[in-house]
């Protein structure tokens, strides 16, 4: 690990000021960043600890929730409002990592956690365009069982690994930001980028911009939500495919549906094609399958990950059927 300086910010303004002055990286729970520092993947000169920022979950007047960026993953998953009103989010978080890691991990850090691509981590032995732009990608011809089937490029096939973000994407979460140029908001689905020719640029954040909170809009009272994660062992494994879904069915027809996939793309993947195919149509298994296929029409397979296309198909279909059936 490279030598660096450390400072703890008391509030957002201070964090942004520190970051601007020191070319610093924000430190949440450190469960991802510290590993990246140890491996030498990231070499910041300074860390600004943002775990002292507001860690509160407050109700909005419109019925939504405002979640401070420093809220720990465990606290968020255990929050009463989250569990009762946004079960998809609670379940997604609890499906991730381990209890110890969730106790440390923050909302901001979870959103900005980096890919688990093994070639990205192997700074000495492997090439990676994300780590070293222009170097080449060893994942494309290597082990890529867990890699992207949607939105990948010839420069990068890495995935965004977060469970929580798949749920946030399905919930139309909005991210609150603060930077040198002031505060702004971005829909979560627009925060992360697809890799294109610049996989090293992963988000639309400006340098030094801080996530201060995440806002959840209210859910319609008839909407049901669910999260399903498919992985190689029962716990403590990243998603091969995960599905976060919010479904509202009325009189056998899909009134509203929001669907997002985890583990399949460089960003939490909002499945708009599937949603468009479903909205207003019948809530039947056949329609669910057709919608899944519409979404995955654009999917492409690498050497090891072709199964994920069919797996995503099946998982989407099963989750929607379950949500529709329980009505």
């Amino acid at each position: 690990m490279n030598p660096l300086t450390y400072a703890r910010a008391r509030d957002a303004a201070e964090a942004v000021r520190f970051a601007g002055a020191r070319d610093a990286t924000y430190l949440g729970g450190g469960t991802n960043l510290v590993d990246l520092l140890r491996e030498g993947v990231e070499r910041p000169a300074a860390l600004v600890d943002v775990t002292g920022l507001p860690a509160t979950i407050t109700k909005r007047r419109n019925g939504g929730l405002l979640i401070g960026a420093a809220v720990r993953n465990t606290a968020l998953a255990e929050d009463r409002d989250v569990r009762t009103r946004y079960p998809v989010l609670a379940r997604a978080i609890l499906a991730g990592a381990s209890a110890q890691i969730r106790n440390m991990a923050t909302v901001g850090g979870n959103i900005l956690q980096r890919t688990r691509c093994a070639y990205f981590y192997d700074i000495d032995g492997s090439r990676c365009n994300k780590r070293t732009p222009g170097q080449g990608c060893d994942a494309i011809g290597g082990f890529n069982r867990t890699h992207a089937i949607l939105g990948a490029s010839s420069a990068c096939v890495a995935t965004h690994p977060s469970d929580m973000c798949a749920a946030l994407a399905a919930l139309d979460a909005v991210v609150h930001l603060e930077g040198a140029a002031g505060a702004r908001t971005l829909p979560l689905t627009e925060l992360h980028r697809l890799p294109g020719d610049h996989p090293e640029v992963e988000t639309l954040l400006e340098p030094g911009e801080l996530i201060t909170a995440v806002e959840l809009p209210p859910l319609a009272s008839g909407a049901r939500s669910a999260y399903r994660k498919v992985r190689d062992r029962a716990s403590y494994a990243f998603a091969l495919v995960s599905v976060a879904a919010v479904l509202e069915v009325k009189n056998g027809r899909v009134k509203d549906v929001r669907l997002a996939l985890g583990g399949v793309a460089h960003k939490p993947w909002r499945a708009r094609e599937a949603e468009n195919a479903l909205r207003g149509g019948p809530a039947t298994a056949r329609a669910f399958r057709a919608a899944a296929e519409a979404e995955l029409d654009a999917a492409t397979a690498l050497h090891d990950n072709g199964f994920k296309i069919e797996l995503a198909n099946r998982t989407i279909t099963a989750v929607l059927a379950e949500l529709a059936g329980r009505k």
Binding site: R116, A118, Y119, D122, G125, S126, D138, G141, G142, F143, D232, R233, A234, S235, Y236, A237
Partner: peptide, 29 residues
């Protein structure tokens, strides 16, 4: 069911030298 060393046959390099990526059964399994 789970254990598999990812030995990259192009380079002879082990790509998952960690307990996060080399899957041994966890308690829940």
């Amino acid at each position: 069911l789970t254990e598999h060393t990812h030995y990259d046959e192009r380079t002879g390099r082990i790509m998952n030298p960690s307990l996060a990526e080399y899957h041994i059964p966890v308690h829940l399994d």
